[in-house]
Design a protein around this nucleic acid. Sequence first.
RNA 1: GCCCCCAUCGUCUAGAGGCCUAGGACACCACCCUCUCAAGGUGGCGACACGGGUUCAAAUCCCGUUGGGGGUGCCA
Length: 472
Amino acid sequence: MPDPAVRCRFAPSPTGYLHLGGARTALFNWLTARHHGGQMLLRIEDTDADRSQPELVDLIFRTLTWLGIDWDGEVVHQSSRGEAHRAAVGRLLDEGRAYWCSCTRDEIDARAKERGGKPGYDGHCRDRGLGPDPTHVVRFRVPDDGETVVRDLIRGDVHFANHELEDFVVQRSNGHPMFVMANAVDDIDMAITHVIRGEDLLPATPKINLIRAGLGEATTPVFAHLPLIVNEKRQKLSKRRDDVAVEDYQARGFLPEAMRNYLATLGWGPPDGVEIRPIEEIVALFRLEDVTKSSAFFDVKKLEAFNGEYIRALGLGDFVERSLPFLTTAFAPGPGMVLDEDTFVAIAPHVQERVRVLGEIPEMVEFLFREISVDGDAWAKTMEKDPALAVQMLDAAIDLLAALPDWTATAINDAVIGYADAREISRKKAQAPVRVAITGRTVGPPLWESMEVLGRDRSLERLREARAQLPA
RNA sequence: GCCCCCAUCGUCUAGAGGCCUAGGACACCACCCUCUCAAGGUGGCGACACGGGUUCAAAUCCCGUUGGGGGUGCCA
């Protein structure tokens, strides 16, 4: 049911392009916000100055927009909230919830090794009464006893024993807040009601709740830790190993609505089982409570199937418009290259039902826009395997088509197929040499339509060229 | 090591104790259609990880085992 009080946020850190996992997180936040008629906010988590790149922020905005994920209000840049973060750390310090620490990583590790057992911080500086220093960090004093509970809409209550949590750093020695600190403070100030993010953040959540409580915040937001999107080895998608940049999928010719629709099925399914459907319906049906618990494999094959359906559902004009950028990229002006939009429009209906991604289009229609180079395998399979038949069909086609009164696909079909049928040559075999002569390939759009679009002169020219390369 | 999460066809999922002989989608296979390739149509293959409980009844609840994953930074 609608609840306009719902406030979600997507909080990427600009350390790279938008990746699949981030896009899915953004989408589920957006679906939740729109489902309830609440707010979808954006926050850039750029507290790690060394790793954040401002120019990547714009790319993230563009990619979200491409996916049709919009947001409300001003984007919050975490880097501009230093004052609020420092004030919060100060409050923790004043109230004895946090303390200054001078320990280096090496010292911490050395002590851990010495005492054996669990690695991690031992609370060495807890009661040393240290003050600010350019080399000191601030650590949160985690209670020794009790437990911290994370209420998660997807996973139920998750319990963490406080003694398992070490005194974690909330402020770096350079004065910048750590992720959990900035995250907790900003979520409070932005009045976030639903924190929807990847499951990898679940172990950090008790720290955030501890900070909230330490800051005197009586409530916690509703958490929803989404199942991870994994690769074929069932590992979390990684930028190094896997193809995760959403921009790359855009460049390959995936439609944003197909991508968005597919992403919605990763960890969620509509009650009626209808997977491919308008986003409005998904918004209406989506419920965080229904999100799956286990990780989901990103299956490009299935994405392609979705994309193919979306492409076929496009109106012709829309299809052409979306295809053009891929054609102009592939068919950059040059010698022997003429990209004629009308020509593409003529063949487009046949192309539309044959591609799964728009990036496949140039290869399929290349023969219309420049001189062909016959594929070696194609030539061998059709011309060299049965030269007699190839010669017969090519000669027949040249004669019949030169004399054809009307240059239409139907007329071409009747002439060539009529010839083949009369001589009991299988249609499949009869068209093969002609196809290779015309397109240079064994597969492609319907041949007769292709020839109609190519035109009589160019078609005959190619047939004669191919014929010339075969024995007399 | 320790903490946490997860476990239904190859994959994404439906399933909230009897509607399950476990449904759908993608993939795969076969056939039909057909000028190639697609698209479309029809059919097929294919799963409740294992072991204990609870119950008249368990894919569904509980416990354990096994397996997988995530986390364990002055990254986020």
